[in-house]
C-alpha cells in the first residue's frame, strides 16, 4: 500500500509515493535524493537530520512522511538564494564551524530556526538553540561564534 504525498520542498511542489511508515528522512533521502539531512541515528538523538516544517525545526527521522502533506519543508538545499550563500553558510565556512561536515546541515537548520525567531540571541540562547545537535568533532565553539557573527550583522549582503 503506497500513498501519494504532496508537499512543498524548498519552495517547489513535489509528489511522491510513500509507505505509511516512511519517515520524512526516508522520503527526502531515499525517494527524492535530497541528502542534506543526514541519517545519524534514526532515533532523534543526533540532530543531523533537522529540517524545517512550516518554519519549525523538526527531526526528519522522527517525522512520519505523510504528516507533512501540504506543508512547507526546508532543507539546506534551499538555503542559497539566487546562487548566493546564506549568511549562516558563509559564517560557518569562515569560522571553521564544520570539520567532518556530517552534523553541519542539521546545525545550519537549527541555527536558522533560532535566528528566524530571535535575530539577536544571547550566547546562552544560541547554545540552547543548538542543544539538540551533536558534533562528534567538537566544533561547538566555532558554531556558536559563527551564529554570533551572523546575529551581529557581519554577514549582511
Amino acid at each position: 500500500m503506497k500513498y501519494v504525498l504532496s508537499f512543498n520542498l524548498n519552495g517547489l511542489p513535489v509528489d511522491t509515493l510513500v509507505k505509511a511508515t516512511d519517515t520524512l528522512l526516508d522520503v527526502l533521502r531515499e525517494k527524492l535524493n535530497v541528502v542534506s539531512p543526514k541519517r545519524g541515528c534514526d532515533n532523534g538523538d543526533c540532530g543531523a537530520c533537522t529540517v524545517l516544517v512550516n518554519g519549525e525545526p523538526v527531526r526528519a527521522c522522527l517525522t512520519i512522511g505523510l504528516t507533512v502533506a501540504g506543508k512547507n519543508v526546508q532543507t539546506v538545499e534551499g538555503l542559497q538564494q539566487d546562487g548566493k550563500l546564506h549568511p549562516l553558510q558563509r559564517a560557518f565556512h569562515e569560522h571553521y564551524a564544520a570539520q567532518c561536515g556530517f552534523c553541519t546541515p542539521g546545525m545550519l537548520i537549527a541555527a536558522k530556526a533560532l535566528l528566524d525567531k530571535n535575530p539577536k540571541p544571547t550566547r546562552e540562547q544560541i547554545v540552547e538553540g543548538i542543544s539538540g545537535n551533536l558534533c562528534r568533532c567538537g566544533t561547538y565553539v566555532e558554531v556558536v561564534e559563527a551564529i554570533q557573527a551572523v546575529a551581529a550583522g557581519k554577514y549582511k549582503e
Binding site: T23, N43, C61, L62, T63
Partner: peptide, 26 residues
C-alpha cells in the same frame, strides 16, 4: 495513535513496533 512521533517513530524505525494502522491526530 500518532501525534508528534518523537517516542513512537524510533520504535518503528528499529522494528520494535510494527504498526498495522496509523491514525495521525495532528
Amino acid at each position: 495513535i500518532l501525534a508528534g512521533g518523537t517516542d513512537l517513530v524510533p520504535r518503528i524505525n528499529y522494528y520494535e513496533l510494527k504498526p498495522e494502522v496509523l491514525v495521525y491526530i495532528g
